[in-house]
């Protein structure tokens, strides 16, 4: 078993590119100017020039072939800049389509997905990017359908200044593209990438807070020199780091075609408890089980007291047995 928490060289390149891109193209002035709708058409154009809308699609359809783990890094950089560009929604919706049209691959038509099934009147409520999406993918009954229609360009003003809108699943050009199984994969991807963008928001917020606490003075000292201030920040590090690790584990699991809905839901903090409670063994638990099994194979049924009494001959045998199986070096 090996475990590696470092980003790969490819992932590092993606991180550097997109963090720089959004830092330059989506400074606070751009974010403010896009309110209250929460969509910047010029920023979207620049994302198109970069090839970002299609990067999660296979190379055969003209996409960038990025893995979900790489897309999570893109999503985090979006969050860092709270960029008014619905890349996460678009990327996930485009990945559901078996044969995405050229305008979806290049991003000249924005795609999104309805998070809840259509209601009795055929309405998808609060579709992310619904104000600007020309293609919406969602569930109606037991079908997964894609609907092309003209976006309203506006939506209800909301707490997050995001371009959500209610959309009809009946009006426009409809196409059945699959069933709810495909939907659940898309929904898991959306949760992972949305969680990744929130990790970016939290990371940047922590950085800004720490920087401010070092520069703001009270009582003749930076407020960051007071323990009461420091400890509030210190507690956030584990929450932010832990969230990032969970997001990357979930993305990694999906990339390996082993969707781990528990990690995906957990990453967003909105979980289906049925899924989470069914814990599956991780590699480390597997390792522990292997060690326990080898101990019992090597010594027969035993316990620690017996091992304690019998001394180092057993220890040598155990060491050898573990080494032969590659479990220790």
């Amino acid at each position: 078993m090996t475990i590696d928490f470092a980003l790969s060289p490819d992932q590092e390149a993606v991180e550097e590119l997109f963090t720089r891109f959004f830092a330059i193209e989506s400074p606070p002035a751009v974010v403010r100017a896009a309110e209250p709708l929460g969509f910047s058409a010029p920023l979207w154009e620049k994302a198109i020039e970069l090839g970002a809308p299609g990067m999660g699609l296979p190379a055969e359809v003209g996409g960038g072939g990025a893995t979900l783990a790489e897309l999570a890094i893109v999503a985090e950089s979006i969050g860092r800049a709270v960029a008014p560009a619905p890349l996460v929604d678009h990327i996930v919706a485009a990945r559901v389509l078996a044969e995405p049209a050229a305008d979806v691959v290049d991003g000249s038509t924005i795609a999104s997905l309805a998070l809840q099934p259509a209601d009795d009147s055929g309405l998808w409520s609060s579709v992310p990017a619904g104000a600007v999406a020309g293609l919406v993918v969602g569930v109606e009954g037991s079908d997964l359908i894609a609907v092309r229609s003209t976006p309203p360009g506006d939506g209800p003003r909301n707490h997050g200044s995001v371009p959500l809108a209610d959309r009809s699943c009946a009006a426009g050009h409809r196409e059945v593209i699959g069933d709810s199984t495909r939907w659940s994969v898309a929904f898991a991807e959306w949760k992972i990438l949305t969680a990744a963008s929130m990790v970016g928001v939290a990371t940047r917020a922590l950085e800004l807070g720490v920087a401010y606490a070092k520069e703001r003075h009270q009582f003749g000292r930076p407020i960051g020199s007071f323990q009461a201030v420091q400890h509030g920040f210190a507690d956030l590090v584990g929450l932010v780091d832990g969230s990032r690790l969970l997001v990357h584990k979930a993305a990694w699991a999906c990339d390996r075609r082993q969707p781990d809905p528990s990690a995906a839901g957990a990453a967003l903090g909105e979980v289906d408890d049925n899924e989470v409670i069914e814990e599956r063994p991780t590699e480390v638990e597997q390792y522990r089980q292997d060690v326990r099994r080898i101990i019992s194979e090597t010594f027969g049924p035993t316990d620690l007291d017996q091992m304690h009494a019998s001394g180092s001959a057993k220890a040598d045998r155990l060491y050898k047995a573990l080494g032969e199986r590659g479990l220790i070096r």
Binding site: K214, P222, G224, F226, Q227, Q230, F233, A234, V237
Partner: peptide, 16 residues
């Protein structure tokens, strides 16, 4: 003590 450690060595705050 662990918060002190994270604040000083992780986040770069002055020693308190």
């Amino acid at each position: 003590i662990n918060r002190n450690n994270v604040a000083e060595r992780g986040l770069g705050f002055p020693k308190a």
